[in-house]
Nucleic acid binder design. Sequence first.
DNA 1: CGACGTGTAAC
DNA 2: CCTTTTACACGTCG
Length: 360
Amino acid sequence: MDRIILHVDLDSFYASLEELRNKDVMGKPLVVCVYSGRSEDSGVVSTANYKARKLGIKSGMPIAFAKRIAKEKNVVFLPVDMEYYRTVSDRIMELLEGEAEVMEQVSVDEAYLDVTEKTRGRWVKAEEIAGNIKKKISDREGVTCSVGAGPNKLIAKMASKHRKPDGLTVVKEKDVKSFLENMPILGLHGIGPKTAKVLEELGVETAGELASFDLPMLAEKFGENTARLLRGRASGIDDSPVEPRERQQISRIGTLKEDTGDIEEIFNKIKELAEDLKGKIGKERVYFRTVSIIAVDTNLKTHLKSETIAETDDIEAALKVARKLLEGFPDENPETLLRRVGIRVSNLVYKKEQTTLKDF
DNA sequence: CGACGTGTAAC
DNA sequence: CCTTTTACACGTCG
């Protein structure tokens, strides 16, 4: 029996939600931004709706750059409102949970669904379920999504990307080969610009070419393990299960008002971030063992320092470690000024469900 | 093997 | 002009 996995991707989710609650921006190009607070327009574009994308505004682009493109064009710029997006997302994820045997939420706007048993491996059934999901999400929340169906997560993911917005793409087991054959390597999930560049230097341009490329030659560039992984991806092989995720780390990072090397100033920012982190740790009900500081310097290079301690859920303990790590930083990186800093806890241990006598 | 630091990728 | 959060692989060290 074929394994059948769905991947559901909410279309330019943040922008769609803003259009919904802001009737007057409907039909206009809209850009949702993460303002860093350093200057008027510092920060980046989080999500652009399709009208804005057509103008060339893309996520990840500096806001100032987007505004230059938008000049005189009646483009709406709004700040992100994660709380709101999270609330709507939670409702949608709950809905999706009911449509599958197992659901794996990947981010606010993405999830995998294992529907192998429900469909008894029949692709027509999968397409039907996918259609139902699209209709329900649109009816209840007023947003569209793109759904991909495939024999594994990798193919389902690429299928959902294949046609959007509001797409539905089914790639049956037997169609995987032709689906991938002429796909440019950058279109493969998990291959970014760095890897693509190296591959291009080897003369590899499509997934088809990568799938049959000489393994030793690949291993020379990427190491045995990654080489196998890359070739596997290119042939559409992926055995990873759809499973609910347990978070492995929780972090908060922020941008400093200005570049600085002053420990006190930096630590103040970290304290601020830790406050937010504390709430998250409580909500997730976790203990942590490792504390890290994240430091992004003037050249945007990221430095990480971490230390493992005895299991705790005390944010003060984390701050103590952070302080110590921070004090060590200037010696190891003299003359380095910081632009952004953050704090992270990892090595998480989930607290057990509170079981009281009442539960029996 | 666990801990730590770095690089890559995706959202 | 340059955000935020997470995951994973790999090399190195003790």
